[in-house]
Amino acid sequence: MLRRRKLAETLFKTVGICSLALGIGTLVLLFGALIVEGAGRIDWQFLTSFPSRRATQAGILPALVGSSLIMLVTAVVGIPLGVAAAIYLEEYARRTWMTELIEVTVTNLAGVPSIIFGLLALGFFVYILGLGASILTAGLTLALLILPVVIVTTREAIRAIPVQIREAAFALGATKWQTVSDHVLPYSAAGILTGIILALSRAIGETAPIVTIGALTFIAFLPPAPFAMEPPFISFEWLMSPFTVMPIQMFAWVSRPGEDFAGNAAAAGLLLVCMTLGMNGLAIYVRYRMRKRIAW
């Protein structure tokens, strides 16, 4: 009897380790497949060429530039909005139905499939506001998409600051905003940073909403440069430019028949995975360091 129970216990432990290994094994397999198929394709030419009908001459330069510019717009719009919303909810909001409503919509937005954000952008940004399938539209869409992530992680970081810190500041006559900007925000900066990195790493891999707004899959030019030689030196024309991004470039290559393009797709995928995993690794590291250092 006892022996049977012990056997069952060992058996379950084995099954448990196996099922955990399935997840981790998939990650390894996925990485391995991308490296085997794609690592050979990544070279200087691949990084600096435009897409081409011939797989071996094709590159991902426009996608790299597009992804970077869109991340810039997303970060500039999404991060301040998200952090500000989190500050309001944690430090200012009173328990009213309005606060309740905001919290419910944040939770709800976090669960909305990303393609629905794409439909919103298509109907609202592209046609009602008339922004077209531009870098600005894509950046705004992804900013909305990461809003719940930024809000939730920032709130957690702010909540971890002990209430005594705030009371000490108030006791010295600081106003609410002074308390927040001089004490709460600096102390929770590492936690907020973690959330921002995670949010951006999610945005950089998003494909569905950007496909939905009508991004091009084949693009052979770069957006206009943000800097000009003659005054006013800075131009925002690039915001309205058509674009492509790395995940869409990969999608376009996956959808094309033929071994060669599969290799390109793997190479793009490898770059993409390295970027997102790198960003996530960084976030995990920041969080780990933070947990070690803090002793209130």
Binding site: I24, T26, L27, A33, L34, G205, A208, P247
Partner: peptide, 16 residues
Amino acid sequence: VLELLGAVPTVVYGYF
């Protein structure tokens, strides 16, 4: 590690 598994872009899973 599980977190990393959840962070892989979906288009890469499509390729997979």
